[in-house]
Amino acid sequence: MNVFAKLGGFLLARVDSAGYVVDLLVRAIGSLHRLPRRLRFTLDMAFNAGVRSLPVTMVVAAFAGAILAMQTGIELRRFGDTAVLGTITALSMCREMGPFITGVILAATVGSSMAAELGTMQVSDEVSALEVMSVDPVDYLVLPRVVALAIMCPLLTVLSNLVGIYGGSVIAEHNLGVSPDLFWQSAREALTSSGTLLPKEVYVGLFKAFVFGTAIATVSCASGLRASGGALGVGLAVQAAVRNSVILIIVLGFIVTWFFYFLTG
């Protein structure tokens, strides 16, 4: 009985906080018309998010590309088919690894600080202060942050993709005997040979990054706004923000890939 009550309580709390996140996102979208007023603040936020996470993202992306090249290279070498290494690295980087890496790093660096910032504001009554001035905290605090990450995550993803492919090319040259010329040529062909300007992989990846950026900012703001109980509460909010962002990145990444490659072919 007690176990079930606890489990029930746990599930209810999960559903409740998921509901809060969705509601927050809907309200942020509903206040999009206020964006022009918040444009400067939004661009500041986006710039800060980019600068703060750029170095780590680039280092991690380079390693991710290298890992991709190694993993596929080990198998390809058995078949003597390492010429397609560039193609595989470029496409997997764009479709999956680039957005994923960027999202995780953004969650850890920018999402955590958003949760800390809004959490601190919540527990020191600054959010209530906005309300009593009839300033909507969603439009004033959440909207700029969500838009900033929705823009910044795809932009950073483009850089991650390029750096990741470069990381792959280094491994290809030094460990798998694929010349940089061959690697880059096959990568370039993979990324330009479709009828559209860029292949589906790139668009799906960028769309994914857009979804991740939106999700990370919304989840992190929601955690911050629901913080209570002083500094300890802010700490818990940051923890929840990063944990939930990473879970969402994985789940949403799966859903987007599934939707574009299996549901709609």
């Binding site: 009554d125 209530s128 009593v132 009839s134």
Partner: peptide
């Protein structure tokens, strides 16, 4: 608008 609220510690942005 007709009612001000002074928070503990000011609650400034």
């Amino acid at each position: 608008k007709r009612m001000g609220y002074l928070f503990q510690n000011g609650a400034l942005i």
